[in-house]
């Protein structure tokens, strides 16, 4: 249906851009929750990649979709644990700003 009109590389490049945006967010934001949001952006970008491959290269097998579903499950788990950690940190130090944490500093 859409194979001719939209080449695979469009999807891939789009997902790369989205992944880059999410990565920049992880590296530049200070709020831990925002960073979790940015991680979700990256995960979704990767998922888009998987589904696109599935459609264009192995349309009959659906294995890429299965991968995407696995990623979603793991992302849900990651969000749950990540938020729990953020809450605990917040409770202990009343802040979720990562630039205030440098206990590993020399």
């Amino acid at each position: 249906m859409s194979l001719e009109s939209i080449p695979l590389s469009y999807y891939l490049i789009l997902s790369a851009i989205l992944f880059g945006i999410g990565l920049a967010g992880v590296l530049l934001r200070k709020n831990a929750v925002t960073i979790l949001l940015s991680v979700e952006i990256m995960l979704n970008a990767a998922n888009l990649n998987l589904v696109a491959f599935s459609r264009y290269i192995t349309p009959a097998a659906a294995s890429g979709q299965i991968f995407a579903l696995f990623v979603m499950a793991i992302a849900a788990a990651e969000v749950a644990v990540g938020l729990a950690l953020v809450l605990t940190i917040y409770r202990n130090v009343k802040s979720v700003n990562l630039d205030e944490f440098n206990l590993f500093k020399w």
Partner: peptide, 22 residues
């Protein structure tokens, strides 16, 4: 929804400065 809970539990909605000090 879960992230919204996280947001509301931990921070002021309108942070003046969102950019990391790093």
């Amino acid at each position: 929804v879960m992230l919204l809970f996280g947001v509301m539990l931990t921070a002021q909605m309108t942070n003046v400065r969102m950019v990391s000090a790093v």
